[in-house]
Write a protein that binds this DNA or RNA. Structure first.
Lengths: 157, 157
DNA sequence: GGTGAAATCTACCTAGG
DNA sequence: CCTAGGTAGATTTCACC
């Protein structure tokens, strides 16, 4: 199965797109979309899973329904790159459930955090009570999400 | 079922967490995790779906496997808020598959875009060939993701 | 590309608090 | 009366032809 990866044909791409929209599509439904027999659609899905294109299937939750009304991006500039201090910072980031993603970026902001909070007070506690007091942190700038303009992230295929 | 929504009990939260990790967990597997019978686990899942906590199930893809080696955040400052020009900008954002998410933020950057590109050349084309030339755009700053520090986004429950 | 066995889901039914 | 557990029919998957 070395070369099933080199090129995704158009059907593969549409299959991946369909499964990004609904992971519970049956082989029969996939076949209907792709103009394939159910067995071929199922086999193709299996191939793409085993080839590593599909890493898993996840439930999509509604943040507002869960009481998470405030979504924000927080840029964190580090005061130091001292490994010890950065490690304790990393532990905090990993431990806090309200920080759902964290990236290191090129440019002047060292970290970008994506956070979900119940309300503005929660965001303030995170920024001023947790991040800013940390010895490794120099500066924090938070930007609240006003609107999710483009819906989340089907990867381009 | 009016009040099944007001408060999620601990079992509900663990169920949501489990399904965020793997949407294909069977009712039996869920029951094993939650110490419930399969029928009760399935029933609980159904309730959470109907109550709107779960909005759907999606396949998670591997961007690198798909040949998308460069991931970046692009901040776009608008030159104008003229509705017409903003609309054409919005159409471009929605049309381009390499822009997977777009948010409007508080602060000086008007839009934050999350993009996946094959390589740096692709990102450059997007920034200098598509975004900057647009009449509504004043300034663009792209920051490439070096490392995804915290894995993507199970929502806190 | 099709078929059949195994597994799973869902709706209904029964028991217990 | 409401919640938990179990059972049967329908649907789906997966290995084989």
């Amino acid at each position: 199965m070395q070369d099933s990866r080199t090129a995704l044909d158009d059907t593969d791409k549409r299959l991946l797109a369909a499964l990004q929209g609904d992971a519970h599509l049956t082989a029969e439904a996939l076949g209907a979309v792709l103009n394939l027999s159910p067995s071929q659609a199922g086999r193709r899905r299996q191939r793409l899973e085993q080839a590593g294109y599909i890493t898993g299937y996840a439930a999509r939750l509604d943040p507002v329904r869960l009481g998470l009304g405030v979504q924000a991006f927080v840029q964190v500039q580090m005061a130091t790159h001292d490994p010890d201090k950065v490690r304790t910072f990393a532990r905090i980031v990993n431990a806090r459930p309200d920080i759902v993603s964290a990236w290191t970026l090129t440019g002047d902001a060292d970290y970008l955090l994506r956070v979900y909070c119940e309300d503005l007070a929660g965001l303030n506690t995170l920024v001023h009570g947790v991040l800013l007091p940390h010895p490794a942190v120099a500066r924090v700038q938070s930007q609240i999400v006003m609107d999710q303009f483009k819906p989340d992230a089907p990867l381009p295929t």
